[in-house]
Design a protein around this nucleic acid. Sequence first.
DNA 1: ATACTTTTGGCAACCGCTTGCCGATAGGCT
DNA 2: AGCCTATCGGCAAGCGGTTGCCAAAAGTAT
Lengths: 351, 351
Amino acid sequence: MTELSPPEADAKASPGKADGRAVKTNATIYDIAKLAGVNPSTVSRALSKPGRVSVKTRTLIEDAAAELDYQANPFAKALPTGKTSTVGLIVADIANPTFFGTIRGAESTAADQDYSVILAESAESPKKELSAAKRMMASVDGLILASPRMDDDHIRQLAGEKPVIVVNRNVEGITCVVPDVDKGLGEAVRHLAGHGHRKITFVAGPEASWMSSRRWLAVQQACEWSRIEPLKVQSQTPTIKGGRAIARTIVSSGASAVIAYNDLLAIGLMQELQAAAYVVPDQISIVGFDDIFGADFTTPGLTTVRAPMETCGVEAAGLLLKALKGHGDVPSTRYIDTELVIRGSTGKLLA
Amino acid sequence: MTELSPPEADAKASPGKADGRAVKTNATIYDIAKLAGVNPSTVSRALSKPGRVSVKTRTLIEDAAAELDYQANPFAKALPTGKTSTVGLIVADIANPTFFGTIRGAESTAADQDYSVILAESAESPKKELSAAKRMMASVDGLILASPRMDDDHIRQLAGEKPVIVVNRNVEGITCVVPDVDKGLGEAVRHLAGHGHRKITFVAGPEASWMSSRRWLAVQQACEWSRIEPLKVQSQTPTIKGGRAIARTIVSSGASAVIAYNDLLAIGLMQELQAAAYVVPDQISIVGFDDIFGADFTTPGLTTVRAPMETCGVEAAGLLLKALKGHGDVPSTRYIDTELVIRGSTGKLLA
DNA sequence: ATACTTTTGGCAACCGCTTGCCGATAGGCT
DNA sequence: AGCCTATCGGCAAGCGGTTGCCAAAAGTAT
């Protein structure tokens, strides 16, 4: 009972050499076949093609399988079928909190459908990313690219081999899932406008980033609608450090409110401003983007546009699995709503 | 261009039928063999057993392989050899920032040696964890368990099948890598003592947690050495919320400084205290544990004991790969130094 | 040149599972 | 009972590599 000997199949798998040591050889369908007194192919069918064999032999086989603690060898399974029950997920930077949600969402929905996810990081390098993708291609059924850095053509090329879903970027001809920045950013601008701000500066992220220009565009449009003057300053790096470095420029821009490309920038900015005795939000309001883990650790808490990355991950994995099961739709972009999360870093200007 | 047909496997796998459309069927060693005019087995050897064939035929084969853009089918490779070039990583909770570092460290060092990592989450459930582990066992060469929740015997049982490394917990008979809490916690206590604190309360984490009791022990020992009185209060959950909930109890404990089981607890506590107009660190000092992402977002920044989880991940993957290559040592526990990171949440008591 | 040892490449048998094809069996029908 | 048609199980050929064994080729020594 309490005996917990490792499952010791002890299988005299090798029909000949009964040479002593009980080596843990996993049971195969042949072992089951022998035990159940049927042909291996019947075992295979009983286990994977439900209706193909009579229920009598099926239960017979299932019992035998259970007794042997049978686990199908996934490699043997993948070889003839080409289906691996595995999806690849490549993220630009594992340590970037933005991706935590994506990873989790993708992993959980994949696991729900008995798919495994194999993870790789590109370290923000287009080259490493592409090679990781190519390497993976051979062992997965499909790929999720989160904020890919490689260019569109390469992505399309990969998609020509196996289903590919892109998260956080729009690629023509590929199924994408991206946060709809307009909604959240619109809310942010109106929120700021409602507090009397008339001049907002946007702290841009990497110049080459598709997402950054997309967000700047959204800010501009929202500002136009609210009759607000949008300004833009360019940050060197989208990090806390970058945020601190840009503080001086922000102040001299004369805006009373800033919307940052991301939370890190916003937090760095806030820290630097506070260090210079500015009070947030009385003297300047700050809005971040992403609502990363920790955005509520600051004092005051950071008002930010939440990009539901976990939802994106779930969605991406869902679309991918759907495509793998043949119910794939025509590639298109699915937009996930973003929303403003109001905390303490925004408010009325107290002149 | 805009042609977006789903990847149409459509594979006319059979190399014979050259019936038109250039379907991207991956090249096999047979194709190479034909192109190079040698036997497939020679190709296999040329590609994986360096010295086994003459350099002449080898370059011949390599050229052919390059021309065909050959990528070995990992499944076909895994079948006869049993080696999958994949390691499994199971974490208790993907969204818990503590694990980000571990994941990253493990992934990067595995990738460096051309191993892939397949990731799974146990959602803190011992049952899900065990089943995930068992499922993985079939497709990986070895396993890394980060903060496993299953019991020791199950872990040992898994380790009986394939190499297993445990992170963040000590299991007899298994190779483990755990942060050496004594060092950092000792520094924390001495740091506090140096600021005149004479009574420290430790906010404990989950009662069942091995790590929590380990840390409490370390605090007690350090306190004894510094002639300080250690107190302990139990938190319900090791989260921000849990931290906020425990604030009242902490205050009434009469201690002037607290060391929390983890950063989340510390941050929640700090937030609640500040909301009640306590000033940190003038009225009470707070030390966290982990140095999670965002621990420096607070105001004041959180003084905390840094547990270098990325290093643990690197170390764990390194040990695992070593074991896989047969250079494994006798199981033992490797300790990774923790260190105190001093920010603003600790200081002299200003009565 | 002869005999002998090393290389080197080929043959074929797996690894464990899937699947097309076929014959046997059983059930349904007149 | 006799015939027809589903249903079910078995056979065997792969999937794409690896590898033990062997013979041909090449190198070495006498």
